[in-house]
């Protein structure tokens, strides 16, 4: 019942905002050529659906973002957890991780395009790098937050470092790993879209960029809304995964 009311108010909010936008454009307060207009966006989206290009572009971006997300998050989480096992290594790597984290990862994009070409591989690589770093840092910091008394308990039981890692550090770090996954939905899409901005012939980033160049602002909005739908779907997948592994 409550969920239904929440859903209803969510739809209501979207309708009111879009309606207001449409109305302000109709009375001439907002310019359709500068801001786009909901009815125009709907028409543009419909055309793109009929021609099949919207599906094609959405599919390309989704595949890039999801694969990049999966590779980056899995590797980042694993390395982040594993660094706990060997403190000297973790300490040695720390300044490098901090340095890479500080750089806007997008700055690597031109290099990646040189290495991987202008196909989907390059976008997957950018999404993977972004999500790798976020997962690595969040998960590693999570392992450092493990309750000191729990570690003491494990030692008093005679547990080895690997045993302590498997039985305590990894499960205790799981909530941290999961919170990084949520952030990574956004980062994976940034990676894919920015890669498409730089050079590509397809994908939602290409739709947004190319429509912008042509002053087709309704087309830009179609791309943005499609990205939002992809983001919501990916977030939902993360929720499903969370239910599987959460304790």
């Amino acid at each position: 019942m409550l969920n239904f009311r929440v859903l209803l108010s969510q739809i209501g909010l979207a309708v009111v905002l879009l309606g207001l936008w449409e109305y302000l454009t109709a009375i001439g307060y907002l310019s359709a050529s500068l801001y786009g207009v909901p009815s125009g966006i709907a028409t543009r989206a419909w055309e793109m659906m009929l021609s099949g290009e919207l599906w094609q572009h959405t599919w390309v971006t989704t595949v890039e973002a999801v694969i990049g997300f999966a590779i980056g998050s899995a590797m980042g989480s694993f390395v982040g957890l594993a660094l706990w096992l060997h403190e000297p290594t973790a300490r040695c790597l720390r300044p490098f991780i901090v340095a890479i984290n500080g750089v806007p990862k997008i700055a690597f994009a031109p290099l990646i395009i040189v290495w991987f070409g202008i196909g989907m591989e390059a976008k997957i690589a950018i999404a993977a790098i972004l999500t790798f770093i976020v997962s690595l840092i969040t998960t590693y910091n999570g392992t450092l937050e493990t309750d000191k008394d729990l570690l003491k308990l494990m030692r008093s039981l005679g547990a080895s470092r690997v045993q302590t890692w498997l039985k305590v550090v990894v499960p205790a770090g799981t909530p941290w790993m999961l919170s990084a996954l949520r952030l990574n939905v956004g980062f994976a899409l940034i990676g894919a879209v920015v890669g498409e901005y730089i050079s590509s012939q397809e994908g939602l980033g290409y739709v947004v960029y190319y429509s912008g160049v042509l002053y087709d602002l309704n087309g830009v909005w179609v791309g943005i809304f499609a990205l939002m739908v992809v983001a919501l779907l990916m977030d939902y997948l993360v929720t499903l995964f969370e239910r599987m592994v959460r304790w």
Partner: peptide
């Protein structure tokens, strides 16, 4: 430098919540 020879119970129960 050995552990595991005594049972150790702390103030906090230290149960693993998962």
């Amino acid at each position: 430098d050995a552990t595991g020879h005594v049972g150790y119970m702390l103030q906090k129960d230290m149960l693993l919540p998962w």
